[in-house]
Computed example of a mutant assay.
Amino acid sequence: MDTKQIADRLVELCREGKYEQAQQELYGEDAVSIEMDGLPPGALGNASGMDAIREKGRRWSENIVEVHGGSVSDPIVAGDWFSVAMAIDATYKDMGRMPMEEICVYRVRDGKIVHEQFFYPTS
């Protein structure tokens, strides 16, 4: 798959809430996941390699009590990179109800996502 096909498939799976399937299907084993600087102690941080990224995803989903809404934009593709705007309104075990919006940026190499980075307010 090329970058546009991968981006479209990621958006499709995320809109269906199939994050684990997206990781399994679309990510390279050497992928990295980068969060914003300045996160509070105990927050999910950066992860390197698919085992660590899967664990990060598992911890995030286990913390969700209820999802009230959300959205995933169409992707914007440029070469080996693409970005997607995502939003979620959810109640978390450790934070209560918290709506969040972010820009997610991805890099594709050899037909797999190898880099994801998230941009959102930390205050």
Rank of each mutant, 00 (worst) to 15 (best):
M1S: 09
M1H: 08
M1I: 07
D2H: 07
T3P: 03
K4F: 11
K4D: 07
Q5D: 12
Q5R: 04
I6R: 00
R9S: 05
R9E: 14
V11A: 10
V11M: 04
L13M: 05
L13W: 13
L13Q: 08
C14N: 13
C14A: 13
C14K: 05
R15E: 13
E16I: 05
Y19Q: 06
Y19L: 09
E20F: 15
E20C: 02
Q21E: 15
Q21V: 15
A22L: 12
Q23L: 15
Q24F: 12
Q24D: 14
Q24N: 12
E25S: 01
Y27N: 00
Y27H: 04
G28C: 08
G28N: 05
E29M: 02
V32A: 00
S33C: 06
S33P: 01
I34F: 03
E35Y: 06
M36C: 06
M36S: 06
G42V: 03
A43E: 10
L44I: 15
L44C: 01
L44D: 02
N46D: 15
S48M: 03
M50T: 04
D51H: 09
A52M: 05
I53E: 04
G57T: 07
R58I: 11
R59Y: 05
S61T: 15
N63E: 10
H68C: 04
G69C: 09
G70E: 09
V72P: 02
S73Y: 15
P75E: 08
P75I: 14
P75D: 11
I76W: 12
V77H: 10
A78K: 08
G79L: 11
D80Q: 14
F82D: 05
F82T: 08
S83C: 15
S83I: 12
S83E: 14
V84W: 12
A85V: 15
A87Q: 14
I88D: 03
Y92I: 07
K93P: 05
D94W: 12
D94G: 01
R97F: 11
M100K: 10
M100Q: 10
E101S: 07
C104R: 04
V105I: 14
Y106G: 00
Y106K: 00
V108M: 01
V108D: 03
D110I: 04
G111I: 10
G111F: 10
K112W: 08
K112R: 14
I113V: 12
I113P: 02
I113H: 01
V114N: 02
H115T: 06
E116I: 00
Q117E: 15
Q117I: 06
Q117M: 10
F119P: 00
F119G: 00
F119T: 01
Y120T: 00
P121Y: 05
T122M: 00
T122E: 03
